[in-house]
Write a protein that binds this DNA or RNA. Structure first.
Lengths: 210, 210, 210, 210
DNA sequence: AATGAATGAGGTTTCATTCAT
DNA sequence: CATGAATGAAACCTCATTCAT
């Protein structure tokens, strides 16, 4: 809406028109809200069983507004996934120097499980998504940068541990982690994730003599 | 099939309805064909992204015919899943006595990986399905009987091995297996599954001193 | 089962090939059977809710066979209706001389109710059909000849009774009959049709002083 | 609506979402329009022979929009029926005190016929519907409350008239009415409904000596 | 920025009818 | 005469997306 009486600007609406900053803030919050609601519904009912209508209803906004913030339902999903990936990875390697001490390695394991435990439903969604042919591609794109960095860090760590076959050892480790997580998110109520977490940590402590 | 004795035409070419046998055969083949095509499309594009139309087209039949064989798209999926589960499990514990010798245990690991290797795309589909909220339930139903039996067999085996904590040990084992499989089906071209298979077998051979 | 010894045909199957008569008989019976089953299903579930499939199943024959006897589902209905109309009307005016004595008039009323009582479900179907725009036309055709004759007979009867306005009197009479019937078929379990029947007969006996 | 004060354009043309009021109005009108069109088509061709497609076409809207206003085709019919029943009954017993004077009784008859005369096609539809097995149930639900009230009022009236058998007398009366109506809606062009109306009124005036 | 009516393509499903045997 | 697999048109319905306001 344009102000057609610019001369009155300073008089009548001094505080009324929102600053560009404020608008940006509003947009950001709205976007966040929509993504939150959508994530919850996608996780509960699946992407295909969640209509834009339902998202709008649950967010108490209009269908049209969602298209004001996202090009399409697909893009909405994409942004949610990107956020999720970003959030998930940013917890690891806190000092972000690409170097893991022994303690940081055990903390990495601990952190991985804690992250999943804090929201198994979302993890289930992303695990499922990552196995869907149609989604795989763009998910890869989101994930890749982070994944490469983390992989590198882990690789360096295992390298330093002078295992017989580093790659093999890493695969073993990641399989163990991923398998535990998959089992947990498949049956969060009954899988004893803390037991497993401790067992895995103990396992490596014994192995690395630390 | 052409009649090679045209002189007997009047005898053989009497127009008779197909026998019950023949119809049964036709039905069985058609059903199999539809399931095959559907499975392939589901695996390639996902369940929701595969329309009955597409299945019919690829099978070169009419949409309607599919409903002659399956009550609904959902039931089609269900039957495919049941077939898959049945086929997957029937390879394990060959003598089916619920008792695993050491060799049978290693064979079980071997077999698990071989089964997945023989068709990673289908396993990816079923893994994805098993993580989909809406599908979980009926998939559970198909899986459960088999899963319980296998679980029991594994449990007995580990029990006999007198580990400190049997349940924990089993979870560790299944996580390792599942994690390896998930990683493999996520990137079948690059994941060194045979290395991992051997490493896991060696790991347990060392652990159990066999 | 094919006869593989055609040479013995004249010996063993002398009486086997059905005569044209017999075929006609079979056709007639089959047709009757199909119509019976169809009528029952139409009456129970409505014409549109009854598929050819269901009729075939209930009659323990194949779908295709029905088309051997009837051009279409519509034609099947048409023939059923025609039969029904024929059967319904042929009970009236037994000596068929177009002349109703007093007793025959009361018998006509009695007969009308008895006919409806003997099968309210079928009457409900035909009443419903007669009110359906799409059906009205061909039903008219079936009904008309009979209706005209009965109307004439009734008209003559009332004429002889020298009412003030014959047409009006007849309409009153037929309305009374039809209304009673409609109410009965709408709620056959609770409508006291016999009471009404007697009341109507008494009503006319009093009126006509007979 | 054109803005006749173009100078104020900047004031009026601000693009605002429609108010809730406006949307309510739109919804109400559209719903009414759809029901009107549907009723006409149902009456002309029957419920089953009228597709959502045809309704949309005749209303010059899209198929989808109908589902914005009605859950299903069945619900559309149901709402139409409810409207019809409500409209039909609300004319009777004007002071709504459940008590019929003699004059009100004759007025009731008069009114019944007038109502039917004003729209025989719709009455035909509802009569037909009320005889359809599948529909009977929900139609009953719509009708019942009104029917019970009217029945009661009529019953009281006949009771006061001290007939030999009240129930019988009422059935006779309702049969007469219903039969007349059925005959009229079956052949509205030729059935002399006014004659019958008068005859019935006279009949009861004579009977009750009023 | 916000609304929700409206669209229309596409999905699942049904079913009268055909046809080879 | 008899079968039931197969067809295909058309039905009902869903939903991402657009658009006037």
């Amino acid at each position: 809406m344009k102000n057609i009486y610019p001369i009155f600007d300073h008089t009548f609406s001094q505080k009324m028109p929102k600053t560009e900053e404020q608008y940006k803030e509003i947009r950001k919050e709205r976007k966040e809200q929509i993504k939150d609601v959508a994530l919850q519904l996608f996780a509960d009912n699946g992407f295909h069983n969640t209509s834009i209508q339902k998202i709008a209803q649950k967010a108490s906004i209009s269908k049209g507004l969602i298209y004001n913030y996202f090009e399409s339902k697909e893009e909405l999903l994409q942004e949610i996934v990107e956020d999720f990936v970003k959030n998930s990875y940013q917890d690891f390697d806190p000092n972000n120097d690409g170097f893991l001490t022994d303690d940081e390695f055990y903390f990495f394991i601990e952190k991985s499980f804690e992250t999943v435990k804090s929201n198994p439903v979302h993890w289930k969604l992303f695990m499922a998504l990552s196995l869907q042919p149609a989604v795989t591609e763009f998910l890869m794109k989101s994930t890749n940068d982070y994944a490469v960095r983390v992989s590198k860090t882990i690789y360096d760590f295992f390298e330093r541990k002078k295992c017989k076959n580093t790659t093999e050892e890493i695969m073993f480790f990641t399989s163990l982690l991923k398998g535990t997580i998959v089992q947990f998110i498949s049956m969060p109520e009954i899988f004893p994730i803390d037991l497993l977490k401790n067992k895995i940590i103990d396992f490596y402590k014994t192995k690395f003599n630390t």
